[in-house]
């Protein structure tokens, strides 16, 4: 498969979205709404659920499954209040000492007047810094599109995993092609060069694990199994150790 084919697969409308993962991996999910500042961003679903007899905080970017829902979820493009809701739930998780599991699937943080007025940049920045400091385990899983800062705002985790056909990139191949090559038709070349597939990112040390995609059922089962093992490893660590591990993971990327 070419890189651009992974991009199309990651965006495919029949691909399971955030809620499907919450429903199939956890039990007793109770959704918690709102950022307590401005509103409730439906592009982010968050709440508490049970996993292996343990309460966990689950946060997912949800694109929606039919046209009506997609519109109400803003196609999974998050506003600042969505990131602030996510952060509120993460701090709540820290207070009650439960792990945080994030599912990422977004073309990017929303570009619009309201999003800028309410500080999209500031909201993402605050999430990056605060996630780095969180004293409970964080696991982030890229299930579809990982669009730039809008994806990273839920991606500062102890472990970052990617589905085999998910992509994670600093910019969309189309955006990159139109800026650098002055031709959006060159998205295929851009996709190849951006190194955005799970295999590329594993090779670059940005992600820890690739979840193979045989079929939807097997994906849920593999995530369940891996999540159980990884949470056991992380729960044994102190808050300081978790922070140290997270800092060192990102500290080592680059040069």
């Amino acid at each position: 498969m070419k890189a651009i084919e992974y991009v199309y697969a990651a965006r495919h409308k029949n691909r399971p979205t955030g809620m499907a993962y919450i429903r199939n991996i956890f039990t007793d999910f109770i959704e918690l709404h709102g950022d307590r500042r401005f509103g409730d961003d439906r592009a982010i679903v968050g709440g508490i659920a049970m996993f292996c007899d343990m309460p966990v905080t689950v946060i997912a970017i949800e694109k929606g499954t039919d046209t009506k829902e997609r519109v109400s979820r803003n196609f999974g493009s998050v506003h600042p209040e969505g990131y602030r809701k996510a952060l509120r739930l993460m701090k709540q998780a820290e207070k009650f000492k439960r792990p945080v599991i994030c599912f990422i699937d977004t073309a990017g943080a929303f570009c619009g007047i309201g999003a800028e007025e309410r500080g999209q940049g500031q909201a993402i920045a605050e999430n990056l810094g605060s996630m780095m400091e969180l004293r409970v385990p964080i696991i982030s899983i890229l299930i579809g599109e990982g669009g730039s800062g809008g994806a990273l705002a839920l991606g500062v985790a102890n472990s970052v995993w990617m589905l085999e056909k998910a992509v994670y990139s600093v910019i969309s191949p189309e955006g990159c092609a139109s800026i650098l090559f002055k031709d959006p038709q060159k998205a295929e070349i851009a996709a190849e060069n951006l190194k955005l597939t799970a295999r590329d990112l594993f090779g670059l040390g940005v992600i820890e694990r690739i979840i193979p995609e045989k079929n939807t059922e097997s994906v849920f089962n593999i995530i369940k199994k891996q999540l159980k093992a990884e949470l056991e490893r992380l729960i044994a660590k102190s808050g300081d150790e978790l922070r140290e591990e997270r800092y060192n993971k990102f500290r080592g990327i680059g040069c």
Binding site: S169, N193, G254
Partner: peptide
């Protein structure tokens, strides 16, 4: 972020 360094640039935001 610098596009020519792809995902590695993005990670500098977290770092």
């Amino acid at each position: 972020a610098r596009m020519q360094e792809g995902i590695l640039s993005l990670m500098q935001m977290a770092k």
